[in-house]
């Protein structure tokens, strides 16, 4: 550990990132540019989230890293190991015990508290990107609150699919001001974003940080006659029987059998430990 400065980044860089985080918290939903550093992992593996986590961690923190809700997938394991090695902080898989949670594509099922920080990995921070390719123009659109285009995207969804088919990275409006990309979380998680914990978003390649202070108002965009719906697979978890959690579909064979399991592995395990058992629960245990 002594080979690295605490949490890999040098102190000047961490100060620079903290300034961006504070600015982001002061202007919720606004994308703050920052001088993103090269990290010892490829872009797309969470370089933005890792830098935000590195600037946020203290030696007393307990870190949890999840990827698509799971603690045991490649991305989560490698980032957890990275901070174990470079920061020497304790790590956990239990949501309630973590003080800093870095996440990719999910919000944990368990409600977070005021003493927790949730750090998102963001691939493309600009919600208007695929509608308006010019960065100069999208900045102007944010500045002038010209967000009609966002609804053009939803309009296209309805006209093609009969419903708003956007299922992840569903655009939200923050405190009635900035339209924000919530990173590719499923829209099932959108309502959870009005939470007690601090939420920080880091995009390494795009060099942007944005943030939501606790209890910030976050509204998912929709039409009056096609209201927002936080959808999930209409199924209970096959391992723990939970009906309120976001599910992954797992194909079991080539004869059409499948199972649905909680994408939040910690939530699923804690429920099974508490004695809840789903349709295939015993088989899996």
């Amino acid at each position: 550990m002594s080979d690295y400065n605490f949490a890999y980044l040098d102190e000047q860089t961490k100060r620079m990132i903290r300034r961006a985080i504070l600015k982001g918290l002061a202007v919720p939903g606004y994308q703050v540019p920052f001088a993103s550093r090269e990290m010892p992992m490829p872009y797309g593996w969470g370089t933005g989230g890792v830098q935000v986590s590195a600037a946020t961690l203290t030696p007393d923190d307990t870190l949890k890293v999840i990827d698509q809700g799971a603690d045991d997938t490649t991305n989560a394991v490698s980032i957890r190991k990275f901070f174990e090695k470079t920061a020497g902080v304790s790590t956990t898989e239990v949501t309630e015990k973590a003080s800093v949670i870095q996440t990719r594509h999910r919000i944990p099922e368990a409600a977070l508290s005021e003493d927790q920080i949730l750090v998102y990995q963001v691939p493309i921070p600009e919600p208007l990107r695929f509608l308006e390719p010019r960065e100069t123009e999208t900045r102007k659109m944010h500045a002038l609150q010209e967000y009609g285009l966002m609804h053009v995207k939803l309009y296209e969804d309805i006209s093609q699919h009969g419903a708003i088919a956007t299922a992840y990275a569903y655009p939200v409006k923050v405190e009635g001001r900035y339209v924000m990309d919530p990173s590719p979380i499923p829209k099932f998680d959108n309502p959870k974003m009005e939470m007690a914990a601090i939420q920080l978003f880091g995009a390494g390649r795009e060099q942007r940080i944005y943030a939501l202070p606790p209890y910030t108002k976050v509204v998912s965009l929709d039409f009056e006659d096609y209201p927002f719906e936080a959808s999930k697979a209409d199924h209970p978890c096959d391992l723990c029987g939970a009906e309120d959690s976001y599910l992954d579909e797992v194909i079991l064979d080539d004869a059409g059998s499948r199972m649905f399991v909680c994408s939040d592995t910690d939530y699923c395990r804690s429920r099974r430990d508490a004695g809840h058992i789903g349709r295939m629960g015993e088989l899996a245990a």
């Binding site: 009609g148 053009v152 309009y155 296209e156 093609q160 929709d222 039409f223 006659d225």
Partner: peptide, 27 residues
Amino acid sequence: LRMSVSAGGNIGERLMAVGDRHYGSIR
């Protein structure tokens, strides 16, 4: 025009830009 957006979306863009949020009436 926005070439990657349908004809209806092209016409509706200005309506949505000035605050129309009812899909049925836009269409």
